[in-house]
Design a protein around this nucleic acid. Structure first.
Lengths: 339, 339
DNA sequence: TTGAAAGCGCTAACAT
DNA sequence: ATGTTAGCGCTTTCAA
C-alpha cells in the first residue's frame, strides 16, 4: 500500500486538506505547517495518486498524438518534437498509429474509450473522408495536423503547402530545368498535402512559363521509400526525358534517388532533385538531398499550444476554430547543385 | 456531464452491479437483461470512466516505453513494434525520451510521478551506471532492453550482441578482407551493446586469424549519422589502409558511407561495409547496406510479454528475473557485394 | 489558517 | 441472477 494524503496528514498532525494545499501550492498555509507537511511528505515518500486526481479533476495530464506511422522518419521526428514540447509543459504523450489510410482505425481512435485517457488529441488524419468530417466533433479538445478535412470545425496547424510546393519547384526552374517530373501526386484527391503541393508545382511551372507534361506526373499512394523507388521505375519505363524531379516527400525522394543511381543517371547533373520534409537522412545521402523544411518544431509547439488553450479553457469553446501555419524554407543541398 | 453506470442502471431498470457485469463480461446475467443493458448503453452512449476504473483497480492499461530518442530510426521502429504489440493486448503506450545518455533524466523517469500513469515500464537504459543499479528497484513491473546494468535484478530482453558482432565481422572476413575497421566502439565502457559487439568483432578476427589494428578502431559516443561521418573522417585522416568496415549501427554506417563516397572510395570494391540494426533506410541507400537484423518484432513481443506477466501476476514477484534473447540474422546487401 | 465531509465513477465483497 | 454498499485517494465546498 502506498502512502496517501491521509497518512501524511496524520503523520504531520494536520488535516488532509492542509496537506492537499501544500502539495498543490494552493490556499494559505503558515510557513511552519508547510514545513512540517513537506517534511512528512519526504519522510513517507508520498506521491500523489494520479488516478484519483484525474477522477476528481477530470484531467489526466496526458495528450494523445495520432499519426499514420512512427516508422516514417517525418512522423517519428514530429512525435519527438511533440513529446518535447509537451514535457516542457508537464504533460506526457500517448502515441497512436493509424497505419496509413485506415479509415476505420481512425474513427475508432477518435471515439474509442482510449480518448478518455487523454485530455486532448493531436491528430494527423489520412484515411477519413470529407463525409466523416462531422465525426470529428468528439467533445474533447482536438487539433488537426495538415489540410485534410478542410471543413472541420476544429483548430488546426498546417504549413503553406501550395507556396512550399511552388518554392520547391521554382528552385528547380531556377537551375534552368524545363522538363520537371513530380512523384507522389494524388490526382483524384480533393484535399491533403499531395493536392496542395501539386497545386504549387503547377503554379510554379506556369509562372515560370514551363509546360506541364502529364507523362512526368507519377501518382503514389503511400509516401514510403519503396514506393519512391517504384515510382521512379515507372517514370523511367515511360521513356520520357526529364531533368528535374520534385518528390513530395523525402522518403519518396530517397527511394527515387536510389533508382536513378542504379540507372547511371547523375543527380544533379542529369536530374536535379528536391524532396520535402527535411528529414535527417537527407543530410547524409549522396548527393545530399535538397528539401523543404516544414518547421517541425514550430508545428509541434503550435499544436500543443492550441490544444492546451482549449484544455485549459483559456480559449472557450465558443471561439471559432483557429488555423496556424508554420513557416517553411527551402534547403538547397547537393541534389540541386547546392553544397 | 457524461453518462455513468448509474445512469445506465436506472435507464435499464437494473442495478449498477448488473451493468458493471455486462460491461466487463463478468458474472452471470440473463440474456434478456444483458440485451436491455446493452441497449441502454448504446442509447446513452455510455463509456466507462477510465480514471475511476484505474483508481479502483489499480491498473491503468498503459505501459511506458523509455528510449533514448525517437528520431533515431532504430528506436522509432522499435516503438512502432511495441505499440503494435501492446495494442494487440488492448494496451496503450506512453513514450518517454531519455535523450542520449542523460543519467539524471533516466533516474527521474524511473521514479517520477509519471510512473503512476503506467502499469509497467519497458526501459532502454543508456546513461545510468552500475552504481545506479539499485535504483531500478522501483516496485512496479520493469523490463530492460539491452545489456546495460547487467546486475540488475530485473526481467530483460537482449540480443546476442557478441555473436551478432562476430557474425557481422565474419561476413567481412569471408570476402577476404583482412584490414577491418570498426566504428562506434566504447573502449572504456564495461557494458552495453558497444562493448559486446566489439567483443564479437575481436573474437571473429581472432577466429579468422586476422590481426586487430588499434588504429582501425574508432570510438563514437552517440551512434548518430553525423557521428558516423565524423568517425569516418577521423579514420581517413589517420592514413591507415582498410578494406572492411563494421559500423556498430546503421546510422553510423550510413554517415560513414557518405564520407567514403565523397572521398571516391568504392563500396564494396575498396571497402566492404556492414552495419547493424536493419533500419529501413539501408535497403535504399546506394549501395544498399548490409546489416544485422536484431529481430525488432521479436524484441517488442518478448518485452511486452515479460511485462504483462509481471503486471498480471501470472509470474509472481518471487520468480527470478528472466532474460530473453531475440534471434538475429545477417543480411547481405550490396555494401558487402550481395544484392 | 485549518478541519470535516461529500462525492468523482467504478469494482468487488457480500447479501439476497 | 441480481442488488447493496464500502471504499479507491483525491479535490473542494463549507464551516470553524
Amino acid at each position: 500500500m502506498s502512502t496517501t494524503l491521509h497518512d501524511v496528514a496524520s503523520h504531520a498532525g494536520v488535516s488532509i486538506k492542509t496537506v492537499s494545499n501544500v502539495v498543490n501550492g494552493l490556499g494559505r498555509v503558515s510557513a511552519a505547517t508547510r514545513e512540517r507537511v513537506l517534511d512528512s511528505i519526504a519522510q513517507l515518500d508520498y506521491r500523489p495518486n494520479l488516478s484519483a486526481r484525474s477522477l476528481r479533476s477530470g484531467r489526466t495530464g496526458v495528450i494523445g498524438l495520432a499519426i499514420p506511422e512512427l516508422s516514417l522518419a517525418y512522423f517519428a521526428q514530429l512525435a519527438d518534437a511533440v513529446i518535447e514540447e509537451a514535457e516542457r509543459r508537464g504533460l506526457v504523450v500517448l502515441i497512436e498509429q493509424t497505419r496509413g489510410g485506415d479509415r476505420a482505425r481512425e474513427l475508432e481512435l477518435l471515439r474509442g474509450p482510449r480518448r478518455q485517457l487523454t485530455d486532448g488529441l493531436i491528430f494527423s488524419p489520412f484515411g477519413m473522408t470529407e463525409d466523416d468530417t462531422a465525426l470529428l466533433d468528439i467533445g474533447s479538445p482536438l487539433v488537426l495536423l495538415g489540410e485534410r478535412l478542410p471543413d472541420a470545425n476544429v483548430d488546426r496547424v498546417t504549413m503553406p503547402n501550395v507556396e512550399a510546393g511552388a518554392a520547391a519547384t521554382t528552385s528547380l526552374l531556377r537551375l534552368g530545368r524545363e522538363r520537371i517530373a513530380v512523384i507522389g501526386a494524388h490526382l483524384d484527391a480533393r484535399h491533403g498535402s499531395a493536392v496542395l503541393r501539386y497545386e504549387g508545382f503547377v503554379e510554379a511551372l506556369r509562372a515560370g512559363g514551363v509546360e506541364l507534361h502529364d507523362e512526368l506526373v507519377v501518382e503514389v499512394d503511400l509516401w514510403h521509400r519503396s514506393n519512391g523507388a517504384k515510382a521512379m521505375r515507372e517514370l523511367l519505363s515511360r521513356g520520357v526525358a526529364f531533368d528535374g524531379l520534385f518528390a513530395m516527400n523525402d522518403e519518396l525522394a530517397l527511394g527515387a534517388l536510389r533508382v536513378l543511381q542504379e540507372e547511371g543517371i547523375d543527380v544533379p547533373a542529369d536530374v536535379a532533385l528536391i524532396g520535402f520534409d527535411n528529414v535527417d537522412e537527407g543530410r547524409f545521402s549522396r548527393p545530399s538531398l535538397s528539401t523543404v523544411d516544414p518547421g517541425r518544431a514550430d508545428i509541434a509547439r503550435m499544436a500543443v499550444d492550441l490544444l492546451l488553450e482549449r484544455i485549459g479553457g483559456t480559449v472557450s469553446d465558443e471561439v471559432a476554430p483557429r488555423e496556424l501555419r508554420s513557416p517553411f524554407c527551402v534547403i538547397d543541398r547537393e541534389s540541386t547543385g547546392g553544397d
